[in-house]
Design a protein around this nucleic acid. Sequence first.
DNA 1: GCCAACGTTGGC
DNA 2: GCCAACGTTGGC
Length: 168
Amino acid sequence: MTREQNYWLMKSEPDVFSIQDLSACRVTGWDGVRNYQARNYLRDGIKVGDGVLFYYSNTRPSGIAGLAEVVRSGYPDDTAFDPNDLHFDPKSDPAKPTWYRVDLKFVKAFPSVIPIQALRKTPGLQKMVLFRNGRLSVQPVSKKEWEIILRLCGKRKNPTAPKPESPR
DNA sequence: GCCAACGTTGGC
DNA sequence: GCCAACGTTGGC
């Protein structure tokens, strides 16, 4: 019997890693998560084939920027072992890693970000974990919530001008 | 930049 | 094991 697809929301600050960055590299390791509840989802809950809402936090507007899909389930996040890494954790033992990551592949970038205010007022989305625990950076999304959000995105108009690639 | 909510740390 | 102090997240 095949496992049912589950759905997740993962946060990133667009300045740090945007949906365009994911589009460019196709696949990325979702590393640097240093929160136990989020870690548990990464290590135990998230499986290959699961759907991911790519959420922009700490920006204007915050909201859902696109979609990704899990292509590798939880495995140790070795950035925790690198003293030069921003997310270095000397307490994570390579023999028994504290932190985990998954790999995501790009699926799509929405024509424009669905802002959190729009999510908040959409019937059926008020109970999203996003609103109950706003700080959790990896969180489950119900199938119903997922479907509502995909419908929202389908209805969205294209932005007035195509988004230029920001120069690096 | 403010500040509320939450998570972590450490003294006891 | 409690809880105050502190640090971080993230919407606004």
